[in-house]
Amino acid sequence: MNAWDISLLHQINTAWSHPVLDWLMPALSAIEAWLPLIIVAVLITFWRGGRRARVMLLCVGVAIGLGDGVISNTLKKTIGRVRPRDARGDVIIRDLGNGSPAFMRLFTRPVVKSSEPNGATHGKSFPSSHTVNLFAVATVIASFYRRAGALMYLLAAAVAYSRIYCGAHWPSDIPPSMALGVLVGLAVVGAARRTFLKNLT
């Protein structure tokens, strides 16, 4: 691992920590905890948004399926990069506490502990699926609704940062994952433009 990668990881994961971030960053990473809110937002958009919004939702679904199920999954298996928390003993692991249903985890005390590498791995580090997925979604949304897309890009960037803060990814995992997400989003929107919305702007 490059020295700058380790140094930046240490800064974000350890030196720049704060008790508020110890809850906020894992909360941003816990996509499953936000699933009820996401489902409601999708249903309202489908119901009230019209044809354009429905095509956007279709593109979002395809982008996530392609980005997560195909690209991220294939690259993780091919590259096999170990996560920081599995590779080093000086990484702080941050997560939400247990809760059921999953959204109740948002109301629990965050778990903050030092990594203890023992040879076990908890998934692969490159690319960051969270980052690929959210930047793909942001790109799709921005192609249909620019202001909403700009907000989504900010959220995607915050989630990407949270993955380093929580010890799940190396800093060098993030920029290529962002680029992959944007490319996936553009490809899906391009296909949709040719197929459904020839006048999409």
Rank of each mutant, 00 (worst) to 15 (best):
N2P: 14
A3V: 14
A3I: 13
S7F: 10
S7E: 15
W16Y: 10
W16F: 01
S17K: 05
H18G: 13
P19N: 07
L21A: 09
A27Y: 01
E32M: 04
E32N: 12
L35N: 12
L35A: 14
P36I: 13
L37G: 09
I39M: 06
V40P: 05
A41V: 10
A41F: 09
T45E: 12
F46S: 12
W47M: 01
G49Q: 02
G49N: 05
G50S: 09
R51V: 14
R52P: 06
A53E: 13
A53T: 12
R54A: 11
V55T: 07
M56L: 09
V60M: 06
V60T: 00
G61D: 03
G61Y: 00
G61R: 06
L66I: 02
G69V: 07
V70N: 02
I71S: 05
I71E: 06
L75C: 12
K76W: 00
K77E: 01
T78K: 12
G80S: 14
R81I: 15
V82K: 08
R83G: 09
D86L: 11
D86A: 08
V91C: 01
R94T: 10
G97R: 03
G97E: 02
N98H: 01
S100M: 06
S100A: 07
P101T: 06
P101K: 13
F103W: 14
M104W: 08
M104D: 04
M104K: 08
R105P: 01
R105N: 05
V111G: 00
K113V: 13
S114P: 05
S114F: 04
S115F: 03
E116S: 13
P117S: 05
N118F: 14
G119W: 05
A120P: 02
A120N: 07
G123E: 02
K124L: 12
H130E: 03
T131S: 04
L134R: 04
A136D: 04
A136Q: 08
V137F: 08
T139V: 00
V140R: 02
I141F: 09
F144I: 11
Y145C: 00
Y145P: 09
R146L: 12
R147N: 13
G149K: 10
L154T: 07
L154V: 14
L154K: 02
L155N: 12
A156G: 01
A156V: 11
V159E: 07
A160D: 00
R163V: 01
I164S: 00
Y165E: 00
Y165Q: 11
C166T: 06
C166P: 04
G167Q: 05
A168D: 00
A168Q: 10
H169G: 11
S172T: 15
I174R: 00
A179D: 05
V182M: 15
L183G: 09
L186T: 09
L186W: 15
A187K: 10
V188A: 08
V189P: 07
V189W: 04
A191V: 15
R194F: 15
K198S: 15
N199S: 11
N199M: 11
T201Q: 15
